[in-house]
Design a protein around this nucleic acid. Sequence first.
DNA 1: CTAGGGTTAG
Length: 696
Amino acid sequence: MLKPIRSSVLINSIMSHAFSKIDTNLLKTITDTKNLKLGKGFHCQMIISSQFDLILTNYLINLYAKCGDLNFARKVFNEMPERNVVSVSSLMAGYFHNGLPSEVFSVFRLMGFGRLLVRPNEYIFTTVLASCADIQALIEGRQCHAYVLKYGLLFHTYVRNALLHMYSRCSQVEDALVVFKTVLDFDIFSANSIINVFLEHECITEAKNVVRSMVAKIGLWDHITYVSVLSLAAASRDLILGCQAHGQITKRCLEVNDFVRNATVDMYGKCGDVLSSQHAFLGARVRNVVLWTTVMAACTQNGFLEDALKLFLEMVTDGIQPNELTYAVILYSCAGLSVLRNGEAIYALVEKSGHKAHLPVGNALINMYSRCGTIEDAHRVFTTMLQKDIISWNSIISGYSHHGLGREVLEAFRTMLMGGVAPSYATFVGVLSACGHLGLVKEGFYYLNHLMRDFGVVPGIEHHTCLVGILSRAGLLDEAEKYMRYTHVEWDIVAWRTLLSGCRVHRNFRLGKKVAHHILQLDPHDVGTYILLSNIYARESQWDGVLDVRKLMRGRCVKKEPGVSWLQVRNEIHVFTSEDKQHPLINQICEKLEDLITRIKLIGYLPDSSSVLHDVEDEQKQEYLIYHSEKLAISFGLISLPSGAPIHVMKNLRVCADCHTAIKLISNVTGRKIIVRDANRFHCFNHGACSCNDYW
DNA sequence: CTAGGGTTAG
């Protein structure tokens, strides 16, 4: 029933016009401005004056539909003595715009059974096809395509564009192209649609060709074209194209549109220009959730992780409610920084907000826990997820792999295959690293040469590097070198360093020196390689070699990147470097560390000075080793964290051999679990052993 | 009297 209209003025005005003819222009204006209250007044006027002709009633359906009151629209529709195609399409459009595509279908089915006695026209198919696109109902979409052909409606631009869009949303590039090719002189709608089809399927060249062909008609471009072109620039990391689009946008004052601004902020972020991204963000008059999330993502993608956290706080302070993607983005920032406490605080917000069931959030939680070193929690999140997608599987597999849990990786991989989930590029990176951890050489080759092909995944440099790692780890260093020599891959520094690490662990210094010099030819500033090379000479007691490395570094102005370790205690991040003694508790920390060193010396610790690069006397070398940043950080953790709590430490470089031995023994004498995330992987020290099995 | 295309995570 009608709700009472409170405004007496309104009632008076309507009653005074009650018996006059309905002003359809006014009714249209009311519809356009979505003024439901005034609209109901008109409905009253129609009832009172018994004006119920077909066209007027259609106006009424449209009015209720546009105002989102579908129950009323349906009621009016149901009670009509006769209906025409406009009545049906108005109602359908109402359902469509209010996110009820299934209702659109049910009305369409009513037409199909003939009960409505109305022949569908181009308006009907445009709306039904849009609904198919909405819920990716490909089968229904194809049926509509058949009807369209049967009724000869394909040459209506609207219908063609709706078909194009439907196929694009249903990921049917071929069908979309077939439709697109029937378009002789495409309008801006079909152009926008086809650009997005290409974009969605990473056909960057084709998309750019369409854009190029549209340059002559730039006057036709609307704000959606710019959104598409900006997305294209973002996807292809094409800052020049992005700037050109942004220039046009500014000139044509289209930046006021939220979507355009979001796409601009995103484009600059994806192209690596964080400053311009932030600038475009700051220029917004009003900032919605998506805009905040986009700029936070731009920071996260470019490593400005603290900025992302700051923006999140600002956003919440501004009273903007985060959505599921905001949580995903901020969790990825926490993961990158390894700040477990912040990650858990966000988790609490996620639980409270009810966004936990969203896939991106669950996936981001798995990643956050695994990158913060608590793989058990990552596993818990993973197993309690209601649905999982390929990213969920890849996240847990990659997490296990970074923690050196080879068996768990293969177990998850088997479960995934049995569940009918197709593995992707990233899956195989995790699986092949697991083969390395487990020493499964034959299996590694089988996965690369057969299984990957079976699943249509083309092996990339990461996979080949994993094979180098598998061979190296198994001690098959010459085979690893041959593999690199004879496999047609453009090897990068990471791959060569994998082989070099193998040479270090298996003490193959002849090959090690050769590989190190090769790396230094590729990149004369790769500090890690100088350290390893110096290490190799030191272990062979070739002190001339050590001196040569130092001379080489000095000559090339290569400075050892200072080792930095940090850990989170309560709400603070405490940062340690070996040289500086800035920490307020430094005296207690050093005291604790000296005590630890004394205790581990009793169970066999011998400082290993081959890791020291400085020109220092022997007794000073030990000093430098003792005060390596990770040792300081762990000592601090031991005096400031509750007894029994695991100690999580992050480090910018790889753990050195001396610290690795020392930390194993420290975990023994203190009975603590110590988790170190270095530049490469996690080391979980427990009861005197490390999860990496001393290979890293 | 009725209809179409677009933004944020891995």
